[in-house]
């Protein structure tokens, strides 16, 4: 009975054959998935980035604004919102600034080219969700998270904020255009 005290000797009870088999199979499976996670860093193409730096929100904001000014190629509006459209050269460092409740700027990227995306926030936490790819990364104030990305499909992506950030969290939707 599992609700009554157990008389001495229970530690010496041998395991049944079925139990031994089950625990062995489970252990082997656990070891396999334990190996799989680090192994994918060597054989897989898609892993989360290991490059990040601490940065003050002010410094990050300055860098992002310089970037937007330098490569600005247009303006786009939707509803009450307005964005700069920015077309950076392939291979460059690009910035995606998150703030309550906006992703800045609209990035225009080239298919097959690689960029270094600097992701951060200048106020609270935000979540980068690239839709419809459903790839998700955290945008954290005080941290410059560098994601090396190579767009493989020419289309318009949405960026949905998926970390709760206040009253208009659900309205925080940006755009990446891949040509």
């Amino acid at each position: 009975m599992s609700i009554t005290p157990v008389p001495p000797g229970w530690w010496k009870m041998p395991l049944h054959k079925e139990e031994k088999w089950w625990i062995s199979i489970a252990l082997v499976w656990c070891i396999a998935i334990t190996i799989a996670m680090p192994a994918w860093h060597f054989v897989g193409k898609q892993n989360s980035s290991q490059e990040y730096y601490t940065i003050s929100t002010e410094d990050y904001n300055t860098l992002a604004e310089e970037f937007m000014e330098k490569y600005k190629t247009g303006v786009e509006t939707a509803g009450d919102w307005e964005w700069d459209v920015v077309t950076p050269p392939p291979g460059s460092d690009i910035y995606l600034r998150s703030m309550q409740w906006k992703w800045d700027p609209i990035l225009k990227l080239k298919k097959g080219e690689t960029y270094r995306l600097h992701l951060s926030s200048i106020d609270v936490l935000h979540g980068l969700s690239i839709h419809p790819l459903n790839m998700n990364f955290e945008a954290v104030p005080g941290w410059d998270y560098v994601l090396t990305i190579t767009p493989t499909q020419a289309k318009e992506y949405r960026i949905i904020c998926n970390e709760f950030c206040g009253a208009d969290h659900h309205g925080m939707i940006g755009k990446i255009i891949v040509e």
Binding site: D80, H131, P132, L133, N134, I160, N162, H169, H170, G171
Partner: peptide, 23 residues
């Protein structure tokens, strides 16, 4: 969730800015 619907969102279609399309 597998199709990219965010958690903790009061409206998955946004609030008047860019619209989002789902499967």
């Amino acid at each position: 969730g597998g199709f990219g619907v965010s958690r903790r969102s009061a409206d998955m279609y946004g609030s008047g800015g860019f619209s989002v399309e789902y499967s």
